[in-house]
Design a protein around this nucleic acid. Structure first.
Length: 220
DNA sequence: CAATAGATCATCT
DNA sequence: GATGATCTATTGC
């Protein structure tokens, strides 16, 4: 066994059955709100697919017509149809010929808005995630990136349009929920609307895909 | 550690 | 035909 990977580090935080018993699925009403509010409130929630689960530690909000970085800004097309649909659904798109990205739909039906899930802190099913992502050398890299987390949790375009309010793919609230310090930064990997602070992450969390642009430097 | 090139395809022009 | 809400391996300091 790789000396870097001691079994403590790669072990599940808790059994999946226990997680499911102690948590509640977020209802559709949670998502039927302004996109930025949904994005911020998703931090700290648990994304579950089958027997694998992780805590959401980083997200990005994508808005409507005035947000040129958002797919929905080009209007209603076959691809963006889901974004204009009812809240609490998954929007999964394929990018760079290789990766899938998971979004959750916000806002009432007819109003575009979605939240890109950018990074997870693995909690359950860590061995399975590791099999799906052999390139990850450290547990911090298992699901720290939009393309990485869909691989780790085996989320694909087959999930496009399905509800996350019941079934195999859900988002859950697991008490107790400590108060979080949330940072807002510009979004990553976009070429338009690059200065809007629509990326949200849990301050100091080591599982985010990229640390904040200006890390606090200087002691004392 | 930072910078960069390559992989690879659905979507829209 | 170009582009893109990315990731990995590799090269160079």
């Amino acid at each position: 066994m790789n000396p870097r990977s001691n079994s403590t580090q790669w072990r599940d935080r808790l059994p999946i059955q226990e997680l499911l018993a102690l948590s509640d699925v977020l209802p559709e009403s949670f998502y039927c709100r302004p996109t930025v509010a949904v994005a911020r409130d998703l931090l700290g929630k648990i994304l579950v697919h089958g027997r694998a689960a992780g805590r959401i530690v980083e997200v990005e909000a994508y808005l409507g017509a005035d947000d040129l970085a958002a797919h929905a800004s080009r209007g209603l097309t076959p691809r963006t149809k889901v974004i204009f649909g009812p809240p609490g659904r998954a929007y999964v798109f394929f990018i760079y010929g290789m990766y899938e990205c998971l979004n959750l739909i916000a806002e009432p039906e007819g109003v575009p808005g979605c939240v890109l899930i950018r990074a997870l802190e693995p909690l359950c099913g860590i061995q399975a995630m590791r099999r799906r992502r052999p390139a990850a050398r450290r547990i911090e890299q298992l699901a720290s990136g939009p393309g990485r987390l869909t691989q780790a949790l085996a989320i694909t375009r087959r999930h496009n349009g399905i509800p996350v309010t019941s079934g195999d793919l859900t988002v859950r609230r697991l008490p107790p929920e400590p108060r979080l310090e949330i940072l807002a930064t510009p979004r990553i990997g976009i070429r338009q609307s690059t200065d809007r602070p629509l990326r949200f992450l849990i301050a100091g969390n080591p599982f985010v895909s990229r640390p904040p642009a200006a890390p606090p430097t200087g002691s004392k």
